[in-house]
Each structure stands twice: as structure tokens, then as C-alpha cells.
Design a binder for these strands. Structure first.
Lengths: 229, 229
DNA sequence: TACAACTGTCACATCATTGTAATATTACTG
DNA sequence: CAGTAATATTACAATGATGTGACAGTTGTA
């Protein structure tokens, strides 16, 4: 689905500019104003990529970066540093503080997009993919279409997101709670059993054009998506 | 048709920037990192235009350019040279090495677009055609005319721009907000639901001469344009 | 000024989607 | 094989999103 970018920037004008542009570009955007907040937000929901100011209140960008690297979930999350001209340029260019790329302010937004995409492509290619295929099932996230074999099938929004999530993580088992988080959203209060119903709806929709069921029920654990080999 | 542009640039940052911007502008983009690769890629698929760095590994831009000129397919392919300030400026201005235009880094992307279009217009005008066709629907963006089958139909300005935007991005789903941005303009304050009304008007106008509705409603996501296959 | 074309907004009808609870079915345990 | 826990299925009411007609304001033109 949409990549989730965490923007850590204390300067309001730039923060708003980045938020606006990344949203427009189709990213989900989280905003943090200082290093501590950044760590908290990154813990709540692992970002797909992080843009971090070099100079931050409370906890500098470099230090925040280091701490992110110590956590399992964010160990490999790409980080782009945003630096003002002159911020210890030597060390920055060395990229030896744990960031994956850096940009010197003022920078061009398109170039930032370009680098963001480059890093995302490396770290989680499936996020940038518009068309995902698993066996004979294919979804186009730009066109919101699902093909099973060579016939289109129709899914409701929730079923579509559910299938999208499954197809980006084939084989992996997700608990109902994980699915609620990933597909419904963090702050949505919905019964866990509701997942069953949507799984059922998705299965029904897919069943029309195929014999085998690509969704495996893992008793007392959750569900997984896999195309029989 | 999308023009196919071959970008030959070894500096990663610039290469990515160019790739990104040209894709965004609606070009198909091929990337090569040095002169040899450029020749191979140009042989595989003849580009409509080439952007070539002056200084390249293995085979300089000038030499690559000469060799392209020797091949039948690429003899008349326009080439824009990208030069760093100071790269033998005298000769470059002479354009006696076979390129059709040149730009000195750092250059502005919009200007590069402008020159690219200018060269394309000269070399293969049909690529910049003002007429867009999808199935039996055809619009002439210069003359502001719309044909459905072989009868003219009349659209208001907003509906025309809406259709124009849809036809340039067939299949893709746009949210109301994206449509407002693209069709109404970024800083126009208009209710999102207004899009619905114009979609309705566009549908009504198109319906007169065709049975199927080319605009697909994607619930909770937006609208997409597509001609049934 | 009167008129026509166009636009944006609202109100209301309609329909798809959703979450839940109730019920049926299945898989595991001993 | 019975008993139990977990999952599947169904039905349904509430919700939310979309389609549509009407209307008033605007603009440009005869």
C-alpha cells in the first residue's frame, strides 16, 4: 500500500512543506518535532523510511538515528538526513553515523522524492510496486483492480486492502490483531472476529475463479496467504 | 504514445532526478550509466531522444554521440548534451560534435523539458500530438474538441479538463482531492463532492453516444477512466 | 438588460459496504 | 467418539459513500 514516511523536523515551515508534498505524492506521513518524539512514533508504527533533521531539540538527529539502529524493527529502516549547509559537512559526507543518504538544505523536493524512492526500492521494493502477482492472482494498486486468472473480480475496499496486505507478505501468518492494525488502522476499534468475516468475504470472491483457497487458516494463530505451488 | 527518452548519466543523484522527472512528465525512460551501455541500450530500442552527459566512464559522451550518428536508426535521433560548467565550453557551444542542443549543469528541469519538447517536435512531431484517443473517444486538446465515435460532443471547460486528465492516465484511480489538484488547480478551495457533480455531467455528456460508461467509480477511493476492452 | 452557459453547493434518494451477533461447522483434545 | 474451542457462515441493521436534480451566483455576450 502506501509507504509510511516519518518526518522528523522541528522547523515548522519545512515540516509543513514536507508533509504536504509527501501526502500529495501518495505517502502516509507521520510528523515528529524532536528526536524523542521520533523514537516514540517509530516504535508505535515502524516507518518504511525516515527523513530526519540533523539538528533537533532534545535529541539530535544523529543520536536518534543511532538509537533507531539498535532496535530490531528499525535496524534496516532507511534514513535520510536533512542538514543545513555547514553542519559538520565532513562527517556527514562520510555517512558514518548510520544514515543512508543525506540532503543539504535547501534541497529540491523532486530530488528528495527521487532519493526516497531509490532507498525504498532497495529496502522494500514491494512498496513501490503497482502491480503485484502471486500465482494467478494479480492486483493493481493504482487502478484498484484484481484479476484472478484473466477475469476481473470485484472486492470491497476492506477486502482489497486485506488482499493487498497478504500479497505483499506471502506465506507469513498474521494474527487478527496484526491484520486489524495493518488493514483497518491502529486506532480503529473493531472486534477481532470481524476479521473472520472479511476473510470469508475475500475467500468467497476469490473462489469464483479458482479451485484452491489461497488463504490458509492457522488455528489459534491467524491467517496466511499462499499460492499452492 | 509516450516518447522514449534515454538518459545517459553516471552521477547517481542527477540520474535519479532525471529519471523521476521524466517519468512524471509522461515519458518512458531508459537509463544508462556510461557510454558503452548507452550504445547497447540505444541499439535495443531506438530512443526518441537522448540526454547524454558530456563526461562519462568508458566512452565519453562525445564519442558515444559520434557512434550513434553512424548508425542508421539513431542518425537523426536528437541528442541533448549535459555539460558541467567549464567542460571545453568553446567547442560545446559550437555543437560540432553531433549533438542538437546542450545544457550546462546545474540546469532547471522545466527548461530541460522545454528543450526536449522542442527537439521532439522537430524530429517526431507525432509524438507530441495534441490529439488523444482512447477507444472511440478522442479529444483534441488544442482545438478543445471531443469526438465520441464520429460525432462531436460538447463539454464545458471543467468537464473537458477532467476528461483530458483522465485520458492521459487511463486506468488509474484518482481521489477527489487529486482530481481537484490536477483539474481545478492546487490552491482552489472547492468542495470535494463537487467532483462528483462534474463526473456526473461528464458521464451524461458521454452517454449520449455510447452505451458503456468509461468512468469507473471506485468506492472510497475515487474515479478512474477506462475503455472496456 | 436580458440571456445563455457554466459552476459550485446543497438536499435527498439510492446503494454498497461494514461490523456484529447468532448460528453452523470444523478441528483438536483426551 | 464426545466435548470443547476455534473458525466459518449467514443475516441484518447501521453506516457511509455516491448519484442526481434543483438552484443561485457568475461571467460573458448580444
Amino acid at each position: 500500500m502506501q509507504p509510511y514516511v516519518l518526518v522528523v523536523e522541528d522547523e515548522d515551515a519545512l515540516a509543513t512543506l514536507l508533509e504536504y508534498n509527501f501526502q500529495k505524492e501518495g505517502y502516509e506521513v507521520g510528523m515528529a518535532g524532536d528526536g524523542e518524539e521520533a523514537l516514540i512514533m517509530a516504535a508505535e508504527r515502524t516507518p518504511d523510511i525516515i527523513l530526519m533533521d540533523w539538528m533537533l531539540p532534545k535529541l539530535s538527529g544523529v543520536e536518534a538515528c543511532r538509537r533507531l539502529r539498535r532496535r530490531e524493527e528499525t535496524r534496516n529502516t532507511p534514513v535520510i538526513m536533512l542538514t543545513a549547509r555547514g553542519d559538520e559537512t565532513d562527517r556527514i559526507t562520510g555517512l558514518d553515523y548510520g544514515a543512508d543518504d543525506y540532503m543539504v538544505k535547501p534541497f529540491s523536493i523532486p530530488e528528495l522524492f527521487a532519493r526516497t524512492r531509490a532507498l525504498l526500492r532497495r529496502a522494500s521494493p514491494s512498496l513501490l510496486e503497482d502491480v503485484i502477482r502471486q500465482g494467478d492472482i494479480e492486483i493493481d494498486t493504482k487502478a484498484f483492480r484484481v484479476k484472478c486468472g484473466d477475469t476481473q473480480i470485484h472486492l470491497g475496499p476492506t477486502e482489497f486492502r486485506l488482499l493487498d496486505h497478504f500479497m505483499r507478505h506471502p506465506g507469513r501468518v498474521f494474527s487478527r490483531e496484526q491484520l486489524l492494525d495493518a488493514v483497518w488502522g491502529r486506532d480503529v476499534y473493531v472486534e477481532a472476529r470481524t476479521v473472520d468475516v472479511h476473510i470469508g468475504r475475500l475467500r468467497k470472491a476469490l473462489k469464483k475463479n479458482r479451485t484452491s483457497d489461497p488463504i490458509r487458516t492457522v488455528r489459534s494463530a491467524g491467517y496466511a496467504f499462499e499460492i499452492a505451488a
